[in-house]
Amino acid sequence: MIDIAVRIIVYGAVVGGIWALVASGFSLIFGVARILNFAHGIFFILAAYLGIVLAKSGVNPYLATLISILFVGGFAVAIYTGLLARIKEHEVMVIIVTLAIALLVEQILIIIFGEHGISYPALISGVLRIGKTPITYKRILAFVVAVVVLALLELFIHKTRTGKMIMASSQNYEGALLVGINVDRIFIITMFLSAVLAGIGGVLYTQVFAASPAASLKALIFAFAIVILGGLGSIKGSIVAAFIIGYIITITNQFLGAQWAEFAALLVIIAILVFKPTGLFGVEE
């Protein structure tokens, strides 16, 4: 029994850390640009696939990881400037278009790589044993990286000029315009950050598990649930919520089976949206 408890605590923390990265990216771009990006999951999975392809073609795995994460950042900026910036005011159209982008990329991945998962080349290997619970170094790596990146994100937002401008734009768009912040530039930076966070999450996730086209929808669902639970646009809320959702996933996996994890996350989203719709978004509609 204690073993199971230890396992749930440890495994849940790892899952929570990964999803916290993905969700804080999702939250960031909504908070700043009011874009509800249903295509967020593709940054998560594209980074993983690109990393796998590069590493398999002989690039050093760490370098491959770096390149692929930066690539999804650039890809996100392209999607933003090419498509989303034009329809930003039309919130429903943003949902539809980003959904279509997500499905389009998923289809392309299915055509190229097939539906079966492929694993990310191991950046690290080995097992640590706590009592009877073995923990792979991959999981430890995932957790450590997640915590470090989240800490850096906090620092960036609160200590740097750009970070403060991002915060300012998210709190008051008109105000930011008035004090002469180049809001469009801020949006682009935020989009880049958002995708990079998802990309790091994707690489870490596929280290421990495997990359498959369907994982992008999973990432979206969990990120969405976390962000709704923690409050859209609030990064701190997302981090706390990520660990809550991480534990919900781990516990449902342990006791109910895999399909229940996503189902439970979805029910959380609906319940919160329905029963506490306003206020959650920080703005009255």
């Binding site: 396992r7 495994y11 539906e115 079966h116 998962g117 619970t133 073995p134 792979t136 598990f209 495997a210 498959s212 369907a214 994982a215 781990t250 996996n253 342990q254 089976g257 895999a258 399909q259």
Partner: peptide
């Protein structure tokens, strides 16, 4: 244990 298509979280099952 029944698993869906594309399932990857076997660690928990193996430990179980």
């Amino acid at each position: 244990e029944k698993v869906p298509r594309g399932y990857t979280e076997y660690e928990q099952l193996l430990l179980d």
